[in-house]
Design a protein around this nucleic acid. Structure first.
Length: 583
RNA sequence: GGGGCUGUAGCUCAGCUGGUUAGAGUGCCGGUCUGUCACACCGGAGGUCGCGAGUUCGAGUCUCGUCAGCCCCGCCA
């Protein structure tokens, strides 16, 4: 490896192989930066120490040629050292040079000079073989590897077993769209690629593998984002005879181990907040606790404020909630409106605000309130409040957006760099367009105090579900699962499933549960997202070796492709749309 | 499914209210050069202006469509 050579290696004979990163040909002398994944080292070629044929070859080397070199490590002459690179005190004086591979001129540069912009991402994905040679991507994938190894060792140390589960599996009736794989043997039937190993890991619990984990690939056929890929990797965990505390404790230990690998800080225990509390105080189920700004309920404090919007929203059953921003009075109207714009983008009709300065009260809300009423909001001189009136469903996301926007506009410094958090007691069910759906998935064990509400008031049923949140990003979620077949059937009925449907779709699960199931639960963490945040990458694509585009295409190898008619026939398939583009 | 941005030399970009021969830097090719490290200097080649229609005397530039990439909403834990 070339990147580790130092002044102490002076005089050592070396045989090095790598890629030609850069060549500086001075006519008599030739310098070549040799690269491998450990870094760079300068090779020097000169008539005094290099064999003539090798010297001639050195003049001809091009970018990305693969070479093998024999020579001696030498301290560089005074004034010829390079502080910029780790091996800058030495060079390898090449005696013999062999070209192992003559590379064509790279379509996109591997070498980048300082401040040079990256090629278009389309080209980077197309020429992934070259892009992956860049130090940044190599560093990301190396860290990813180290995190995976650390996770495996961590779980192994706790007696967890890694068990592989199928990739060709059964379509799941709800959740994301499945990727389907046609069966040749059973024409007209399809496997699905797993959205997660959820049901398999529960089955493993029932089979007695009481501590399981897997670095599991998952597939979801939904539209993509910068932080979403159609195939992604989860650190998947499940254990039997556990309470949430057990899972949370183990996972905190894992996060500490992973953070150590990445050189970041994670302090246990992580704070915990219930979902209801989180929505109340931060308007979000994944609050960024690097900032402590909290939402207040001002419904009472504004009860005698004569302001149409407030009165009508409260009369309709809504509340007045808002954020107190100390020192916020210095914000301009434009800056305040930028906060409002974020709240509107999150679904609010508008944001009310009041500013208090030496001159008095001002703002859309400020105009309507007295000094006493301002005091009731905690609005002191120099402060600003922003508020939203209406149903929590609308105001919570709006205030969550306003909270982050305000932190940015005010230039608040984070109170901590790494804000780890557990959000617990997620509801089991939520209402979507008037229909009851599972908030997480339909296997979440209801809170024991709420089981009796299952049929009478399902929306009030708290679940034993928890999310791990890091700096406002959800890193993973899990729950204690239902291990009683009767209870599982009740939960599925609440979702509107008929008994026959339950038996066809979930019969294998209910059957397994009936075989004597231990209480069990687990969690899954998004590995890609963890690596993305730990490396500070802007996109998931920079922490995956061969990612897909936002249209789910693989540009390097060119997937997906059309199937030939013989293949289709063998599968018993006929394609009726989209036959085009011979390419 | 919807909205926005982008597409000009291998790469990164410039190209004005439409105007006749489309530029720069870098890379590439050739040459000079013994301490460079963004080596320097001299010379050269290199263009389907994403693609297709349309408007116009004339389109890289305007209009419509389409393809691709990226960002966002819907969707997705």
């Amino acid at each position: 490896m070339v990147g580790g050579l130092r002044a102490e290696d002076h005089g050592a004979s070396q045989r090095l192989a790598g890629w030609v990163h850069r060549r500086r040909d001075l006519g008599g002398l030739v310098f070549v930066d040799l690269r491998d994944r450990s870094g760079l080292v300068q090779l020097s070629f000169g008539p005094a120490w290099t064999e003539p044929e090798s010297l001639a070859l050195a003049h001809e080397l091009g970018h990305e040629d693969v070479v093998l070199v024999e020579g001696t490590v030498e301290r560089r002459p005074e004034g010829a050292r390079n502080q910029e690179i780790a091996t800058g005190d030495v060079e390898v004086r090449a005696v013999r040079l062999q070209r192992l591979s003559d590379a064509v001129t790279p379509a996109i540069p591997v070498y980048q000079s300082a401040g040079e912009p990256l090629p278009a991402e389309e080209l980077r994905l197309q020429h992934r073989v070259l892009d992956l040679r860049r130090e940044e991507l190599q560093r990301n994938l190396i860290l990813r590897h180290k995190l995976v190894i650390a996770a495996r060792n961590y779980f192994d140390g706790l007696g967890f077993l890694e068990v592989e589960t199928p990739m060709l599996t059964k379509a799941t009736p709800e959740g994301a769209r499945d990727y389907l794989v046609p069966s040749r043997v059973h024409k007209g039937e399809f496997y699905a690629l797993p959205q997660s190993p959820q049901l398999y890991k529960q089955t493993l619990m029932i089979s007695g593998f009481d501590r399981y984990f897997q670095i599991a690939r998952c597939f979801r056929d939904e539209d993509l984002r910068a932080d979403r890929q159609p195939e992604f990797t989860q650190i998947d965990v499940e254990a039997s005879f556990v309470e949430p505390d057990d899972i949370l404790g183990w996972m905190e230990g894992l996060v500490v181990a992973l953070s150590q690998v990445a050189g970041l800080e994670a302090v246990r225990p992580f704070p915990r907040i219930s979902w209801a509390d989180s929505m109340e105080r931060y308007g979000s189920d994944r609050p960024d606790l690097r900032f402590s700004l909290e939402i207040s309920d001002w419904t009472k404090a504004t009860a005698d404020v004569d302001f149409g919007i407030i009165r009508s929203q409260v009369a309709a059953g809504g509340r007045v909630r808002g954020l107190r921003l100390p020192g916020g009075a210095r914000l301009s109207r434009k800056e305040i409106e930028s906060i409002e714009a974020e709240a509107k983008a999150a679904g609010a009709l508008g944001l009310l605000w009041a500013k208090r300065t030496a001159e008095g009260l001002s703002g859309t809300l400020g105009k309507f309130i007295s000094g006493t009423q301002a005091d009731a909001l905690g609005l002191g001189a120099g402060d600003l409040v922003v508020a939203a009136a209406g149903a929590d469903k609308v105001t919570s996301p709006a205030l969550a957006a306003a909270r982050m926007a305000a932190a940015k506009v005010l230039g608040l410094t984070p109170e901590r760099e790494h804000a780890w958090l557990w959000v617990t007691e997620f509801p089991v069910f939520v209402e979507e367009d008037g229909v009851l759906v599972a908030a997480h998935h339909p296997f979440v064990m209801p809170h024991k105090d709420d089981v009796h509400l299952l049929e009478s008031n399902p929306l009030a049923v708290r679940g034993t579900a928890y999310d791990l949140v890091y700096n406002g990003t959800e890193f993973g979620s899990g729950s204690i699962r239902i291990h009683l077949p009767d209870l599982q059937r009740r939960a599925l009925r609440v979702l509107g499933l008929k008994d026959e449907e339950i038996d066809t779709k979930f019969g294998f699960l209910l059957g397994a549960l009936a075989a004597g199931a231990p209480p069990h639960g687990g969690i899954a963490l998004g590995l890609d997202r963890i690596v993305q945040r730990f490396t500070g990458s802007g996109s998931l694509r920079d922490v995956i070796a061969f990612p897909k585009t936002t249209a789910a295409r693989a540009l390097f190898e060119g997937a997906p492709t059309q199937a030939g008619s013989a293949e289709l026939e063998a599968l018993g398939l006929e394609v009726t749309v989209g036959r085009k583009r011979g390419s």
